[in-house]
Design a protein around this nucleic acid. Structure first.
Lengths: 154, 154
DNA sequence: GGTGAAACTCTGAGTAT
DNA sequence: ATACTCAGAGTTTCACC
């Protein structure tokens, strides 16, 4: 797998070294600076400096472990389209959704629904309970859910 | 932010130490074994062996850098509901979607559409071009898109 | 799961281009 | 502004308990 990068970036351009470096870190987030340096023809220190700069600029937000949700017991996954009441702000919706550890991701979107919510639950019973609780949130008017059958990409 | 873990896991239970360890790694994927060991009252070596075991079991899939897509030039994001032809298999759809580096994630889902596709593009012009190309894929009948306005969670 | 020692890596200061 | 070298501190890795 690799990081596809867009043609160019307005304010602050990344050079080819940065791109290579990021690509390598996305494959192995624990790679040593020395190892990356070998790949990009730079000393470990120079690699460190570049990563620090990318971090300072916000391009690199941090590092994390990649887990298998199914093996952690999260075996059911769904997307819920949320329809809000007329007076519900994104902030209120966020506050509502924040309460649920089962909410993996959420976006406000254009189109009929106001938001799209990605949920993970241990089983369909658990999923149902979470959806029920979300529907009862004051800012939420109604919702429509799709259960994930399989992950194709991502 | 923390990793919420489900009550229990059938075949292979994680103990509290594993949970703590994973939680810490999800916050800092480059944390040293010694540092994690301090947190969980274990030697660096023991931490290393636990992570190796979790890796072998597939619970830990790897480590990665967390990037800011907007700062990398991916400023437009959308979800596309894909409706397939009657004879299109998930494998064919996967093969179609794999061609597009703009496809960040994709799932087959229950409900009216057959799949949900998460796209990132540099701008709306680029987004439009990608959606147009996906719609022209042989296995795809029609599609319906929502543009992401803001990321609330995730 | 712990220990200790060797090999390796990180980090900061100083220096060069 | 970016990269290099060097050396002390810290980390990883391994064999062995």
């Amino acid at each position: 797998m690799s990081v596809h990068l867009p043609p160019d970036l307005a304010g602050a351009p990344l050079d080819d070294t940065d791109r290579l470096l990021i690509e390598h870190l996305s494959r192995d987030g624990r790679a040593s600076y020395a190892e990356i340096g070998l790949l990009v023809n730079l000393s470990a220190t120079a690699v460190r400096r570049r990563i620090d700069r990318l971090r300072a600029r916000g391009v690199v937000r941090g590092f994390t472990v990649v887990l298998d949700p199914a093996l952690l017991g999260w075996r059911t996954e769904a997307f819920v389209e949320v329809y809000c009441r007329a007076r519900t702000s994104p902030e209120e919706l966020l506050a509502s959704l924040r309460q649920f550890p089962e909410v993996v991701a959420a976006w406000t979107v254009t189109g009929d629904p106001d938001a799209l919510v990605h949920l993970r639950a241990s089983d369909t019973r658990h999923l149902e309970a979470v959806i029920e609780r979300i529907r009862k949130e004051p800012g939420v008017q109604r919702s429509r859910s799709s259960v994930v059958l399989s992950r194709l990409i991502g």
